[in-house]
């Protein structure tokens, strides 16, 4: 077990968004956070690396409370891929190099460049590595943000809808690669996802959020038409075939 969340609470001013949320993520595991729009998924994700400061509860990594860590210490351990980023006038390589920022003090060392290089090659984006970020398509930029998080080499990577700008081919290609990165390592990932079938195919565990409350958490076995109806308010048929589970709206 590496990542433990206990009794997490967050409010925007007087509006409570996350209520008493607890779960854990083990190494080699991908946890998908699912739920309707406005359920608090992104807010929950931002609380996990203190981009937002939760008002209550604890987030622990290997038994250490993140509250006692400096932001840079958290960044060395937790990577973050936001849903959107700013398209700056920097080269793709420079932006990916930023992933090494938590690891160096003055300038990146040879080892930092090696991490950047490996992440670029792993995701196969050598062809755009020296292009300006503000000249990329939405999908290319999304990949760049993911590559930056991989170059960061953290224990946990938090993804906010990592496939939202990608076509179906690139969605599956990316998810397969992420799955291989997480499953073959001591890393873990938490992903907010909208595409429930994509989440079912590539994630190991699922957390369903409704109005800031955890409706259910568990593996494929918790996926039932009743749960989907409770969370999304839609009637579905759940098809299970061996390891594969598919949700089909009626």
């Amino acid at each position: 077990m590496i990542f433990t969340i206990n009794g997490l609470q967050f409010s925007y001013r007087s509006k409570s968004v996350i209520h008493d949320t607890s779960f854990e993520v083990r190494e080699g595991e991908i946890l998908a956070i699912l739920g309707r729009n406005g359920a608090g998924k992104t807010t929950l994700l931002k609380c996990l690396n203190r981009v937002l400061h939760p008002q209550g509860g604890r987030v622990e990594l290997d038994g250490r409370d993140l509250k006692g860590m400096r932001p840079v210490e958290i960044a060395r351990r937790i990577g973050w891929v936001p849903q959107r980023g700013e398209l700056s006038r920097m080269k793709v390589y420079d932006v990916i190099l930023l992933g090494r920022k938590p690891h160096f003090r003055w300038e990146p060392a040879v080892g930092d460049f090696r991490h950047v290089e490996e992440a670029i090659r792993f995701m196969g984006i050598e062809d755009i590595a020296l292009r300006y970020v503000d000249e990329l398509s939405g999908g290319e930029f999304q990949l760049v943000q993911i590559v930056r998080a991989l170059a960061q080499d953290p224990r946990i990577i938090l993804f906010d809808e990592p496939t939202s700008s990608l076509d179906i081919l690139n969605q599956h290609t990316l998810m397969k690669k992420l799955q291989s990165v997480i499953h073959d390592s001591t890393r873990a990932a938490v992903m907010v996802m909208h595409d429930i079938n994509l989440a079912l195919r590539y994630s190991d565990k699922f957390l369903f959020l409704s109005d800031g409350h955890v409706s259910a958490i568990g593996d494929h076995s918790i996926i039932t038409p009743e749960l989907i109806r409770e969370v999304y308010g839609i009637d579905v048929r759940v098809i299970k075939d061996g390891h594969d589970t598919l949700v089909v709206p009626l």
Binding site: K46, P71, A75, G79, W80, L98, P102
Partner: peptide, 8 residues
């Protein structure tokens, strides 16, 4: 948010 996530 990206900057915060990078420890800034």
């Amino acid at each position: 948010e990206t900057a915060k996530g990078l420890g800034v």
